Simulated scan of single mutants.
Amino acid sequence: MADLSTSYLGLKLKNPLIAGSSPLTSSLDNLKRCEDAGLSAVVLKSIFEEQIDVDSESAVDESNAYLTHADAYGFMKQASMEQSIDAYLTLLVDAKQALDIPVIASINCRQNGSWIEYAKRFISCGADAIELNRYVVAADVEVEGPAIEKEYLSLVKSARKQLKLPISLKMGPAFSSLANMLRRLDELSIDGVVLFNRFYSPDIDINKLALVPAQMISSKDEYALSLRWTALMSEEVRYDICAATGIHSGSTVVKQLLAGAKAVQLCSVLLKQGLSSVAKMEKELSDWMDLHDYSSIPDFNGKLAQEKMPDPAKWERVQYMKSILEAQKG
């Protein structure tokens, strides 16, 4: 029987399958189900700093008739914010008491917000690690690329300076030089990076002529981007890479591990196929390892990373004609 244990963010995991932030990780009952299903760690549903601010402003607006004093306004706003934070802290504390697997707190943060104070409170409540979520839609034509990069780097630098717990950054791929960005994160001594986040996107309802949310569930074919960048960077950086998006089968888990990922985050597959998919993926991974005579994940982890390939340029090729011709032959 193959040993599926691995290490991510300095945490010992019984297998590389982590429950990513989603509705499935927003309640204690679901967190228990995740552990029972065989997942090795859970990332709590992200707390959105921006949403907390919006909700607190709404609470103030609803009580506006009673807020004739500036101190009253500040009190109401702070009380509303504390209510949201307290609910998250309660979930974190309950999860740590009920689960035997690592619990990772997740914060969707803004550059100059209160997220650092939230993170400190999560740490005091027993979080095993902190996952920072950051995404910027670079839609302002006056803002140049380096300014966006500076925001990310400043956020991680601040987190590393003030937080002593393992820190990871869940990020998107939209950088002019992603490789350079990932290397610079390494220079800041971050513990891990999750490649990549799947963010909200708008769509258009052509009948109602209105904006609607686009499909948020990934498909089984969407792992290619994270696979490529995991393979390109896993031997170039010291931190752990966790692959995400489009991971719907054990074979895709194998691919990500071969590329150099230390773990993978599952989300859409759990929402789409249910938690029973975890045991299936775990078995597929174990069977593949037995078939290839690998007794543990370190035996093959990163075996096909770019730095270990006889033809490393293969991971960088973007020409598609050969692929089209091969597909036509098939």
Rank of each mutant, 00 (worst) to 15 (best):
A2D: 04
D3R: 10
Y8A: 14
L9V: 07
G10Q: 04
G10K: 05
K12R: 13
L17V: 02
G20L: 00
S21N: 04
P23D: 02
S27H: 01
L28Q: 04
L31T: 01
V42D: 06
V43R: 00
L44I: 01
I47G: 11
F48I: 06
E57P: 03
L67A: 12
L67D: 05
A70Q: 10
D71S: 14
Q78G: 04
A79D: 10
A79C: 06
M81A: 15
D86R: 12
A87C: 09
T90G: 07
D94N: 14
D100N: 15
V103Q: 05
V103P: 11
A105L: 05
N108V: 04
Q111W: 07
N112V: 08
G113H: 06
S114K: 12
W115F: 08
E117C: 09
E117L: 11
F122C: 13
L132I: 15
V143A: 09
I148D: 00
I148S: 02
K150D: 14
L155G: 08
L155D: 06
V156D: 08
R160M: 09
Q162H: 13
L163I: 06
K164P: 03
L165S: 13
K170D: 00
K170P: 09
F175V: 06
S177F: 06
A179W: 01
R183E: 11
D186K: 07
I190F: 07
V193M: 02
V194A: 08
S201E: 13
L211C: 09
L211Q: 08
I217Q: 12
S218I: 02
S218W: 00
S218V: 04
S219G: 15
D221S: 12
D221I: 05
A224N: 10
A231Y: 02
L232V: 11
E236N: 07
C242P: 09
I247L: 01
H248W: 11
G250W: 00
K255T: 04
A259S: 09
C267E: 02
L271D: 04
E284G: 08
L285Y: 02
W288Q: 03
F300W: 02
G302Q: 01
G302F: 01
K303E: 11
A305K: 05
E307G: 15
P312F: 04
K314F: 13
E316D: 14
R317S: 12
V318Y: 09
K322Y: 10
S323M: 08
Q328R: 14
